[in-house]
């Protein structure tokens, strides 16, 4: 098991290097000159040239790449072309809100979606099942910002239960954090609840037809035990997969939510960086997202064996 995890970690290195190469090239090859943006519309060609030189944009691609990789190795993600501050510092500042909201989203999604899916499968083809499936279709089809505004309208403006926008770190008190994080999390969670509930239902439906479920019932086991002890663990692998993939996708999903709720997370940072062609920040963001994706996948793969003893590495 330990050897397996070690092997998997080693195996992520080439993945990350390929991502790095891809990221580097993609941005250098797209049109748009950061020097021009930095200098403003009235800059002379001379000024532009000086800025390019200072930023190293005139060196051959391979030199720029090697320099960048060298910095990466040292954990230095470079300096923002726009704000002139360290990218790693910017990321750390902005990561907190995003991670907190993402985690809260996942907790809400799993806590609601898994029981929903289980009950829908158990009461297959009844109104309960129909209700869950309808919600699921709705959750898929309504855009994130629409849900966000509807929730704000109801809970912040009409009922005045929570503030409209903004963010407080949990270190400033759990109450203020929670009241501001709950709506964005619920907004984000809608689509994941839809996704996870659907997958749970499908996976459970399959498992509930298995012989060992009949055996459990033949033993006189209560239905809740049949569902959660006997069936759910067997249905876990596809559900875990979808939760893992969902979490990774979440990081990109926060962009819209953070704009709607005015949260200073990495979603907003990314949008700003792309609009300003702030290369170092964009590169760091893509690397970070790829890193999170790889890490979450590793976590999911390892967790399979926790639920299913037949999976051994």
């Amino acid at each position: 098991m330990f050897v397996y995890i070690l092997k998997r970690i080693v195996a992520t290195i080439p993945v990350m290097v390929i991502v790095a190469v891809f990221v580097f090239l993609l941005l250098r090859l797209t049109p748009g000159d950061p020097a021009a943006i930095l200098a403003g519309d009235s800059a002379s060609p001379d000024q532009l040239e000086r800025i390019r030189d200072r930023l190293g944009l005139n060196d051959p691609l391979i030199v720029q790449f090697m320099r960048w990789m060298g910095q990466l190795m040292r954990g230095d993600l470079g300096t923002s072309l726009i704000s002139n501050t360290s990218v790693s510092g910017m990321l750390i500042d902005r990561l907190g809100p995003t991670i907190n909201i993402a985690l809260m989203t996942i907790v809400i999604s799993v806590a609601l979606a898994v029981p929903m899916g289980v009950i829908a499968a158990w009461r297959h083809r009844t109104w309960v099942d129909f209700l869950v499936m309808s919600f699921s279709v709705l959750g898929f089809s309504v855009p994130v910002f629409v849900i966000g505004y509807i929730l704000i309208q109801i809970f912040a403006i009409e009922l005045r239960w929570v503030p409209v926008q903004g963010y407080r770190a949990p270190s400033d008190g759990i109450g203020p954090f929670f009241s501001r994080a709950i709506l964005p999390s619920l907004t984000l969670a809608t689509i994941y609840i839809a996704l996870i509930a659907r997958m749970t239902r499908a996976s459970m439906l399959e498992v509930l037809g298995e012989d060992y479920i009949r055996t459990a019932r033949a033993k006189g086991v209560r239905e809740n035990v049949v569902l959660f002890r006997h069936a759910l663990r067997n249905a876990a692998v596809p559900i875990l997969t979808i939760i893992g993939t969902g979490f990774a996708l979440l990081i990109s999903g926060v962009v819209v939510t953070e704009s709607v709720f005015n949260i200073p997370g990495i979603g907003r940072l990314t949008v700003d960086a792309i609009l300003a062609r702030d290369y170092p920040v964009i590169q760091a963001m893509i690397l970070l997202t790829a890193g999170i994706y790889v890490f979450v996948n590793l976590l999911v793969d390892v967790s399979y064996s926790f639920f299913d003893p037949r999976i051994r590495y």
Binding site: E210, D211, T215, A216, R217, A218, K219, G220, N234, R310
Partner: peptide, 23 residues
């Protein structure tokens, strides 16, 4: 449910699929 296992019990054809693989 109360009758099953106490008064009446059953064994099935395929013991591999009749037993829960994760318990």
């Amino acid at each position: 449910r109360a009758l099953r296992a106490r008064k009446i019990a059953m064994i099935f054809q395929e013991p591999m699929t009749a037993l829960n693989p994760v318990l």
